[in-house]
C-alpha cells in the first residue's frame, strides 16, 4: 500500500426523499487498498458504492477520484467511469452479446482500441477467471458463478484504476461463492484498489486491508479486519457481528 489516496469522499450527504441515506460520510481509499464495507440491510452500503462512480448522484459534499472531483453528467463522467470498474450483485452481463463480446465492448467502443488487441486481452482475462472455453456462449447459458466471473473480466478489460463490488456473491448459490471470491482474492493480492460491499466475513478477514462498518447512513467505525472482528468498539458493530457470526 502506498498510502496515496485514490478515492476520497468528504462530507457526503445523500437523501432519497426524506430518507437521509448517507450522512456526512468521510472515507478515503488509498491506491492498492482493499476496503470491505459491511453493515445491516438498508444502511446505505450500495448507495455509497454507487456514489463513487456517480451512478447515484449525491446532494452535498465532494467525491474525488485520482485527484479529480467527479464531473457532472456527460463525456467527462463517462471517461471517469471507464476508469472505475463495477461489479453488480445481479451480474448485468449484456444479454444479447456473447461472453467475449461482453468483455470486448468497453475497450472497443469507449477506448477505441483495436479489436484484435482487445480480443487477445479479453481471452487472457477470461483465461484468468477460468471461463475461456465458454467465450462464444451467451450469458444465459452460464451459471451464476460463471456469469459473475465474466462480469469481473469485463470490468478488468478496461484496465481500471479501481474496482467497486456491490454484494458480488449475494445472488449466488453457496457452492459458487468460493469461485468468485477466489478471483477477487487474487485481484486483491495483485494490488488492485477495491471497495467491496459484502456479507462474506471470511473474505473480509483474509483479503481486506480495512473493514468499514456502516449503520443508518453513517460510517460507524473502521479498522483493520483482525482488530475489527476481535474488538469492535461500537455497540452497533458488536450487535451486528453477534448476529451474523452466530449463524
Amino acid at each position: 500500500m502506498t498510502g496515496e489516496a485514490l478515492i476520497v469522499l468528504e462530507n457526503v450527504n445523500k437523501w432519497f426523499g426524506p430518507l437521509h441515506v448517507l450522512q456526512d460520510v468521510d472515507l478515503s481509499v488509498a491506491r492498492g487498498e482493499v476496503v470491505v464495507v459491511i453493515g445491516p440491510s438498508g444502511s446505505g452500503k450500495s448507495t455509497l458504492c454507487r456514489a463513487i462512480n456517480r451512478l447515484e448522484p449525491i446532494n452535498s459534499g465532494t467525491i474525488t477520484f485520482d485527484g479529480q472531483p467527479l464531473p457532472a453528467e456527460g463525456r467527462a463522467l463517462a471517461r471517469l467511469r471507464s476508469e472505475v470498474g463495477m461489479v453488480f450483485q445481479s451480474f448485468n452481463l449484456f444479454a444479447h452479446k456473447t461472453i467475449l463480446q461482453n468483455v470486448m465492448l468497453g475497450p472497443v467502443k469507449v477506448r477505441k482500441e483495436k479489436s484484435a488487441v482487445v480480443r487477445e486481452r479479453a481471452m487472457g482475462l477470461l483465461e484468468r477467471v477460468g471461463i475461456a472455453n465458454q467465450a462464444d456462449k451467451y450469458p444465459a447459458q452460464l451459471s451464476g458463478g460463471q456469469q459473475q466471473r465474466v462480469a469481473i473480466a469485463r470490468a478488468l478489460a478496461m484496465q481500471p484504476k479501481a474496482l467497486l463490488f456491490d454484494e458480488p456473491t449475494s445472488a449466488l448459490d453457496p457452492e459458487m461463492v468460493g469461485e468468485v471470491l477466489d478471483v477477487m482474492t487474487s485481484l486483491a493480492r495483485d494490488g488492485m484498489t477495491m471497495v467491496v460491499v459484502t456479507h462474506e466475513m471470511g473474505f473480509a478477514r483474509h483479503a481486506a486491508d480495512r473493514v468499514v462498518f456502516m449503520a443508518d447512513g453513517q460510517l460507524v467505525e473502521q479498522a483493520a479486519p483482525e482488530e475489527f472482528f476481535a474488538n469492535p468498539r461500537s455497540d452497533r458493530a458488536r450487535d451486528f457481528l453477534s448476529k451474523i457470526l452466530t449463524h
Binding site: L55, R75, R81, G85, M86, N92, V110, A155
Partner: peptide, 17 residues
C-alpha cells in the same frame, strides 16, 4: 432491465453508445 443500461454506463459508454 435497468441493470443493462447501468452496466453500460459503469463501463463508460455515453448515452448514445
Amino acid at each position: 432491465s435497468p441493470g443493462q443500461a447501468e452496466a453500460a454506463r459503469s463501463l463508460g459508454l455515453t448515452f448514445t453508445q
